[in-house]
Amino acid sequence: MFRNYKIAGGLAIVSAVIAIPSMILMFIDMFTESAALGLASAVTQLISGTVFVLLMLYLRSYLEQHLGLGQQKILFGFIIATGALVPIAGIAMGFLDPFSSIVTMLAAMIPSILWGILMLVVAFRIINAKVVDVSYAKAYAYLVGATGLLNATILLSDLALLLGLASDIIMALMFFAATQNKLPGEAVPQLENAGSLA
């Protein structure tokens, strides 16, 4: 079902495009009482979360089918669950007084920390995949691993946003390369070799 990598590449681009305005709205909403701004922030967070879930389903399919890593249902089940909680936590934080409940604020950060750790696991699996050479997949693995690490620290999560944008772009290139029935990073004339490696 999730093997149309052209759609996946398009979703990765959408994710990169909406990431910055989504985060800006979320942070502004934390310190204002505008109902309209709160609604806009909630909508963008929900859209971002939906795109994330779809991208993870496509990424799971890519790892299983294109990189031959076997079943990844459990790992990506946890990734989707924690990733879906991140925008929900962001929306909830918008309704909190940022100085009233430190415990509540920290609790809202837990999904982001868990997501960062899980994405480090994904990066490790891609890097250690036997079919991966110099490719978009390996570049994506390093970027998403660094993004996960920064996200898990919370204090450096702002830097994670920039790396997240870069990883979304590389993910798009990785998916678009997969539509050409070749391993990412290989040239088109090497299709025969790619087929033998699959």
Rank of each mutant, 00 (worst) to 15 (best):
L57R: 06
F176Y: 10
M119L: 14
G9R: 00
L114D: 04
F175R: 04
D29L: 09
L161K: 09
I74Y: 14
I91W: 06
I127A: 04
G116A: 06
P21H: 13
F99N: 13
L11Y: 05
A36L: 12
L156P: 05
F78K: 08
V134Y: 15
L197P: 03
F52T: 08
L156F: 11
I20G: 09
G83L: 01
G9A: 08
T32A: 12
N128W: 09
P87A: 04
V17E: 09
S167E: 11
Q71K: 12
L57V: 04
G70E: 04
A160T: 03
L57Q: 08
S61Q: 07
T82F: 12
L63T: 02
I79N: 03
Q190L: 06
V103W: 05
L165P: 06
R60P: 02
L39S: 10
M174L: 04
L155K: 13
T104I: 07
A198Q: 13
A172K: 00
L183K: 00
I74R: 15
Y142D: 03
G68F: 02
A166P: 09
F2M: 06
N181V: 06
I88K: 02
G49Y: 02
A36W: 11
L183S: 00
L67G: 00
P111F: 01
A12R: 01
S135C: 01
A92M: 10
L150N: 07
G145L: 05
Y136R: 10
I88D: 01
P184G: 01
A84V: 09
V86C: 12
G195Y: 08
L143S: 13
A40P: 10
Y58S: 02
T50L: 11
S135N: 03
L59N: 08
L75R: 04
V132Y: 02
I102S: 12
L63F: 02
M23Y: 15
K73Q: 11
P21Q: 14
A178D: 12
G77P: 07
Q190E: 06
L11V: 10
L191R: 14
L106S: 11
Q45P: 00
L183N: 00
A92R: 03
L156M: 11
F124C: 14
S48C: 07
A187V: 08
P184Y: 06
F124D: 12
L183H: 03
L69F: 10
A166N: 07
I13H: 03
Y58D: 01
A19F: 13
M26E: 14
P98K: 09
I169M: 05
P98W: 06
A160E: 02
L120Y: 10
K73I: 07
G164M: 07
M109Y: 11
A89Q: 01
L191G: 15
K138E: 04
V121C: 11
L197K: 14
T147M: 13
F175W: 08
F31R: 13
V14C: 15
Q72G: 08
R60K: 15
M26I: 08
A139V: 07
A139S: 10
A194G: 11
M93C: 08
T82G: 00
F31N: 13
M119T: 12
Y58G: 00
M56N: 13
V144A: 15
A139I: 04
G94V: 07
M1P: 13
